[in-house]
Write a protein that binds this DNA or RNA. Structure first.
Lengths: 344, 344
DNA sequence: CTGTTAGCGCCTTCAG
DNA sequence: CTGAAGGCGCTAACAG
C-alpha cells in the first residue's frame, strides 16, 4: 500500500452540481434532490423542468455526498482470486442483485495472508458499506474484531457445517456434497476410491469435503491400508499429478474423486495421454460442474452447486436485513446435485 | 434498477470518528487527520499518542468524506461477464495495481445492451472515480458523451487497430494476432483452414481476428470456394458444433482455428468423441492460452496474450495520467506469442 | 408543494 | 507544530 493518491489536483472543470441545476431551474437545491429521489413530492411541471435540465446537462448526482448524508449503498466484498474457479459466477450473481437494488459492488480480491486480509477488510470498511460479503476465509483475529465492531451486516459464503458465522452465512455443506459423491461412487461399484484436493490446511471447505469422503467410505465399510488421498494445487496439472501419485500408492485404484473439476479435467487429460480408457481403466469424478464438464470427452461425472445462486442469495440476505426484516435465517444452506455422466 | 436503498436507517451505534479520537487524545481533529496522512508534520509524541488510540479503537477513516474533500480514489470499471473468459485475469491485474496504489476498484459487470451500458456508466460516474477502465464496447452515443464530458481519464481495454479511443487504450491488435496464427498454420502445411468465432457483429476484436485470418489467407494465396467460417457461441459446445459444421462445408478441412480456447477445447473433445486423431485427422488451434491449454490432450496450440498484464497496464496508464505525466501514450499495444504445441 | 437550516466526516487553508 | 474556520455535495428535518 502506497500512500493515497494525489492531492486535490488542478482545478478540473468540475462537473456541475445540484446547486447549479437548481439555480438554472429557478428552484432550491432541495427541490432538485426531491425531483430525483422522490418525484411524487414535486409538482409535475417543476419536476418536468428539472428533469429536462438534468438530462440536458448530463447531471449525475454525487454518490459520495449522497451516501454520506443518507443511506449507504456500497456492498463490499472480499474474494479469493477470480481466476480458475466458480468465484466469477458468484461475483456475477452478487453483481446482478446489487445493481437491481441500487447498490454498488466494491471488490477486493487477492490471495490473502492474514495480514493482507486485515488490510482488505479495513479498506472495505472505510467505504462505509451497507453490508459485506466475504468469500475468503477470515483468519486473523484482528480482522474478526474489526468486523464485529462494525455495524454492517455480513454474509460469509462458506462451508455451513461446523462453522459459526460472524453474522450470516450462505453455502453448502461440503461434508454432505462429498459424502454424497463418495457414496454414489461406492454404489456404482467402485472399490478403491482415491481423493485429491488442494491443501486443506486452513480451508474448511476442503477439510469438510475430505471428511465427507472419509465418512462415506467408513459408513460403507471401505477400508484402505494406505489412505488414497493426495493434496495438490488446484490446476489441471495437479489433476494429472494425482493420477500419477494415486496409482503409485495403489495400482488398483479404480476411481479418483477430484475435489474440483479443474483437477478432474487435468486427470482426464492425463488418462488420454496414457492411453487409458475412462472409466474402464480409471474413472474420474469432479466437483463443480463447470461449463466444460458436459462437453469433455468423456463427459464428466461431477457435482453441481449453483455458485451464481449463492452470490445472489448472499446479497439478498444482506438486503433483507437492511430492509429491517428480523426473521432472516442466520445460515442458508443451498442444495446440490450429482451429475452422473460418463467419466465415472 | 429499483429506487435507492433505505433511508438513514435506525440510529446504529455509529463507528467513532476523527472528532472523538481527537477529543480523547486531547488534540484538534485536524491533528489526528495529519497524524494519519502526513505523519511527519506532527510531533513524535502527539503522533504516537494518536496512533495508539486509533489502533486501539479500531478507527477507520471514512473514505467517503475523505474522497469528497481531497482526492478521488475510486477506479471504476465496466466489464463483460466474468464467467468464461480471460476477463477474470484482467480484473485481477487491475485489482492488484489498484490496491498497491491505494485505490479501490468499483466493478460493474453485465451483458450490456446500449441502454444498460449507459446506466452502468452513469452509475460509475456518480462515484466520482479518479479514472475509468472500460472493457466492454461502448456503443451508445449518449454514453460516449457522458464520458467525454467528464474529467476522469479513461482507458479502454480493446482492439487497438482502427479504433479511435475515447481517451487511452490498452490492448493487442487482434488483426495481427489472428494474422500471425493463420500464417503459422499455413507455414505448418495446412491447406484448408477453418475459422470459428462468436458472432462478430458489434465486436471489433472478433471482427479484427476474422479480418486478420482472411488477410493472411489472401497473402499466402489460399482461396476457398466456400468460406470456411462459422459463427458460434463461445462455449465448448460451440467448438463441438464448429467441427460438425465446418466438416460439412468442406470435408477436407484440415485445421480449425478457434478464436477462443474455449471453442478449441470443445472442438478437441468433439474429435475424441468421433475417434478422430488430433492433429492428423483434424488439427485444432486456439486463442488465449488458458490454464488448461497446456494440460489438454493433445496439448493445445494457441496464442497467448497476457490478460493479467493488460489489466495492470490499464490501471498504470490511468495512474500515470493522474500523477500528471504528460507523455502517456494514447495507445499501448501489448505483445503476444504463438504457443506451438501438439494440437496443430 | 417548496424552501431553509444544518450537518454527514473529513481536510484545505490560513492563522497562530 | 497545532488549531479554527469553513466547505466538499447532498439531503433529513422542519418550517412555511
Amino acid at each position: 500500500m502506497v500512500k493515497p493518491p494525489s492531492g486535490p489536483g488542478p482545478e478540473r472543470p468540475r462537473r456541475l452540481g445540484i446547486k447549479e441545476i437548481a439555480r438554472r431551474a429557478g428552484v432550491a437545491p432541495m427541490t432538485v434532490s426531491r425531483a430525483l429521489n422522490d418525484p411524487e413530492k414535486v409538482s409535475p411541471d417543476t419536476r418536468a423542468r428539472i428533469l429536462e435540465l438534468v438530462e440536458r446537462e448530463g447531471f449525475i448526482p454525487n454518490q459520495l455526498a449522497s451516501s454520506m448524508r443518507s443511506g449507504r449503498r456500497i456492498i463490499g466484498t472480499m474474494v479469493p482470486p477470480l481466476i480458475n474457479s466458480g468465484i466469477a459466477e458468484q461475483v456475477q450473481g452478487m453483481s446482478d442483485v446489487c445493481h437491481a437494488s441500487g447498490h454498488q459492488l466494491l471488490l477486493i480480491q487477492g490471495d490473502f495472508t492474514p495480514d493482507a486480509e486485515e488490510n482488505a477488510i479495513r479498506a472495505l470498511l472505510g467505504w462505509q458499506p451497507a453490508g459485506l460479503i466475504l468469500q475468503a476465509f477470515v483468519q486473523s483475529p484482528a480482522a474478526r474484531q474489526l468486523l464485529q465492531a462494525g455495524t454492517a451486516p455480513i454474509v460469509e459464503i462458506s462451508e455451513v457445517r461446523g462453522h459459526e458465522p460472524l453474522d450470516m452465512a450462505v453455502g453448502v455443506s461440503n461434508f454432505e456434497t462429498a459424502y454424497a459423491m463418495t457414496s454414489h461412487l461406492v454404489d456404482k461399484g467402485y472399490r478403491r476410491i482415491g481423493f485429491v484436493s488442494t491443501p486443506v490446511h486452513g480451508n474448511d471447505r476442503l477439510q469438510q469435503r475430505r471428511i465427507g469422503y472419509r465418512q462415506a467410505l467408513l459408513d460403507r465399510g471401505h477400508r484402505y491400508e494406505a489412505p488414497l488421498e493426495v493434496e495438490l494445487p488446484i490446476t489441471p496439472a495437479g489433476g494429472a499429478d494425482a493420477v500419477q501419485m494415486l496409482t503409485e500408492i495403489d495400482p488398483a485404484v479404480d476411481v479418483i474423486f477430484c475435489s474440483s473439476d479443474t483437477l478432474a479435467i487435468g486427470a482426464v487429460q492425463e488418462c488420454h495421454r496414457r492411453g487409458w480408457k475412462i472409466p474402464d481403466r480409471l474413472a474420474i469424478a469432479g466437483y463443480g460442474d463447470v461449463d466444460l464438464a458436459v462437453q469433455l470427452f468423456p463427459a464428466l461425472t461431477t457435482l453441481r452447486v449453483n455458485r451464481y445462486a449463492m452470490g445472489r442469495r448472499a446479497v439478498e440476505q444482506l438486503l433483507r436485513r437492511l430492509h429491517g426484516e428480523t426473521d432472516v435465517p442466520r445460515i442458508e444452506t443451498l442444495g446440490f446435485e450429482i451429475i452422473d455422466r460418463e467419466s465415472a
